[in-house]
Simulated assay, not measured.
Amino acid sequence: MRVLAILIFLLISTNLKGQLSGCVYDKATKEQLSYVNIWYFNEEETSGTTAKKNGHFNFNELDTTRFLSFNKAGYEILKVRPDSNVYDVYLSRLNESTNQLSQPANGPRRVGIGFDFKNATSYASLSITKSDPVIYAQYFSTGDYHSYKIEKINVSLSSRINSLINIRIYEATEDLKPGNLLDFKDILRKIKVGKESHTIRMEDLNIRISKNGFFVGIEKLIIEQNMISLNETDFNNNQKVEVNEYYPSINLFPTESSNLLYAYIKGEWMKLDNSKISLGINIDLKR
């Protein structure tokens, strides 16, 4: 019996070292969900990926000490601990709350808020070389323009390949953290090579903003379409190593005052301190 128990343990251990793969579905319709960002983590290690267009995902190994966290616009965040090598996931759709804010009676018909590109003197590009998805979000105060509708968003992004980005709009909570999503579907946009200023039209979403303000999030997608493989020199041993870069790059602009920035990693929002930078986002509001 002792030998049998050891053999069973070894078989289970061997199985747990295999790949972890699965597919993400809509719980109600059973449709496959595309471009779901997934974090695979415990206290010591974090990795991540983005589900493919057909909803499939995989990791190199199954580690039962890690959690999986699934995040997609319009769906409840799901956090689970996988217990098998094939792990299909079903996400529940959120109840869409209608934007009940009425059109303001007074004020200019249109107004622009956010970063002033005309006075920008320099910027740095932030590219991701680790295969971890992330959402960077910046807060925007509405001042006297609450209840205005978001007409379009202008964002500065750079890319060495034709790539794909997802934009998210969050309501700001009372303590100025990213709260509920104001858009209940992915706002996917293609980013073309050589173009840095990108306009995303938003009128059809009919998003009106509250007095607390809002966050604009830029969601990086870890998909093959966004990846370039490069051979770089490891200066520790002078050997060539393959590095994957994921585009587009987010252009960061220095500012005199601090901005309120958050990053969504491992299923949680983390505040970025001493953020005298801007994500290079300008928003046009319409009364």
Rank of each mutant, 00 (worst) to 15 (best):
Y40P: 07
M1G: 01
V111C: 00
I222K: 01
S141L: 03
S127C: 10
V24G: 12
K152H: 06
Q32G: 02
Y264L: 03
K276G: 05
T173W: 02
V111G: 00
L20N: 05
Y262W: 14
A263V: 13
T199D: 14
E196V: 15
N226K: 01
E268L: 07
Y40F: 11
K211H: 12
L164Q: 08
G217L: 08
Y123Q: 12
I167P: 03
Y87R: 08
I113M: 05
Y123S: 15
S197P: 09
I150H: 00
E268R: 09
I228D: 02
V36N: 01
T46Y: 09
I169G: 02
D26C: 03
F70Y: 14
S156K: 10
S210N: 08
Y139D: 00
D132A: 05
K130D: 14
E61W: 08
Y90I: 05
N15G: 13
D88W: 06
R201K: 15
S97K: 04
S163K: 00
Q32A: 09
F9H: 12
K30D: 14
N99G: 00
F70K: 06
V216G: 03
R201V: 15
L62G: 00
N42L: 00
Y35N: 10
E219V: 13
L126R: 05
E245C: 04
G267Q: 11
L126Y: 08
D186H: 08
E151W: 06
K286A: 13
Q138R: 08
G22D: 05
N60H: 03
F41P: 03
G143K: 03
N206P: 01
F41C: 06
K27R: 07
N259Y: 09
E31V: 13
E268F: 04
Q19H: 11
K190L: 02
N231G: 15
P248V: 00
D234M: 06
R287M: 14
L221R: 00
Y148T: 11
R81N: 12
T29A: 09
R208H: 05
Y123M: 14
G55T: 01
D63F: 04
H56L: 04
L20R: 05
K52E: 14
S13P: 04
V155L: 13
S21H: 04
F70M: 14
R81K: 13
S97N: 05
S249K: 00
F215Y: 12
I200S: 13
V89D: 00
L164F: 06
I161E: 00
N206L: 02
W39I: 02
N236A: 09
M270T: 15
E245V: 02
K271D: 05
N238L: 07
K79A: 08
I209V: 15
Y25V: 12
T64W: 10
Q103K: 12
Y25S: 12
N206A: 03
E43F: 05
T46D: 10
S210G: 07
D186G: 09
E76Q: 06
R287F: 09
G18Q: 13
R208I: 03
T121A: 11
V36E: 01
I187G: 12
L91N: 09
E45K: 08
I38T: 02
K271W: 04
L33G: 11
G112V: 07
R2M: 14
L182R: 08
G112P: 01
P104Y: 09
R160L: 01
N37R: 03
F67H: 06
I113G: 02
E43T: 07
S125D: 15
F67E: 06
